[in-house]
């Protein structure tokens, strides 16, 4: 273990896991409770277009991801607000276009492209000091947002029309929430990769929602669970020489299935 921690990349990776867990627990809970899983997937995949563009322009990929996911957040929020029909189709289309844009830009970029793959599957072991600072900043933003607007977010998530009648800034909160999802997505892209983001964002909160009856408690449990998943997955992947992102998600998925079984049998014995 001490030997493990002597590697700089391992220290960074563990730190990244911890930072990601914080945002995951908080934002993931809102995503699960407000049923925004599909929108989150849309934002995540659109962000890939930004990664591709950044590669092409030769700037930091994270910058492109942030820009695209914020634009996507805004568009998704707009789609959600304005069109009552076919919003799932529109989100699905944006999802695909984002990916396609990313790949085309990668094609147009001369030279070595393996790095682009790391955004698809994650590369927690390659997290840099700069990435960590970015993650810290995102966490602070998410924390401030949720602490300031906790009761309003809860009201909007629970019953939007009532919140509207109380004149809460429902649309603004919604777009801000999707923007937070966008930022969380960029962070997660580093750790587990684009394809598996949705799992790490939703599984911890979904487990919490099975057993707990307060949003705040679910957030705490989801943070703890993501920390366990990322750290556990990282260690396992290190010792057994596996892909870290996939290992993390597999642990999360197996835990979720186990939790579902426990929940089912709990219902049966109490009924």
């Amino acid at each position: 273990m001490a030997e493990l921690l002597s590697y700089g990349f391992m220290r960074n990776a563990l730190m990244a896991g911890a930072l990601v867990s914080l945002a995951c627990g908080i934002i993931g809970t809102l995503v699960v409770l407000k049923r925004m899983v599909f929108i989150s997937g849309g934002v995540a995949h659109t962000a890939y277009g930004g990664v591709g563009l950044a590669f092409y322009l030769g700037v930091t990929p994270m910058l492109g991801a942030v820009a695209f996911s914020l634009i996507a957040s805004y568009l998704m929020g707009y789609v959600q607000r304005q069109t009552r029909q076919r919003q799932d189709t529109l989100i699905g289309v944006m999802w695909a276009i984002g990916m396609a844009v990313g790949i085309i830009f990668a094609d147009m970029t001369p030279g070595y492209k393996a790095d682009l793959m790391s955004y698809l599957f994650g590369s927690i072991l390659a997290v840099t000091q700069a990435d960590l600072w970015m993650m810290l900043a995102v966490n602070l933003l998410v924390l401030i947002f949720v602490v300031l607007f906790y009761k309003e977010l809860q009201a909007v998530a629970f019953d939007e029309s009532f919140a509207r009648v109380r004149n809460l800034p429902v649309d603004l909160l919604y777009v801000a929430l999707v923007a937070m999802i966008g930022l969380a997505v960029v962070m997660l892209m580093r750790v587990v990769g684009l394809i598996m983001i949705i799992a790490l964002l939703t599984v911890p909160a979904a487990i919490g929602a099975l057993f707990l009856k307060h949003m705040k408690h679910i957030m705490w449990l989801a943070m703890a669970l993501s920390l366990v998943f990322t750290t556990g997955g990282l260690l396992l992947s290190f010792f057994f020489n596996l892909t870290s992102g996939a290992t993390i998600i597999l642990i999360a998925g197996v835990t979720y299935l186990g939790a579902l079984l426990v929940h089912k049998s709990c219902q049966r014995c109490s009924a």
Binding site: F158, H214, I218
Partner: peptide, 17 residues
């Protein structure tokens, strides 16, 4: 199924812009 207590629901009535 939303995880929220009775008191927290009633408190929402106190919210406003």
């Amino acid at each position: 199924e939303f995880p929220i207590s009775v008191r927290d629901v009633v408190r929402m009535g106190r919210l406003s812009n």
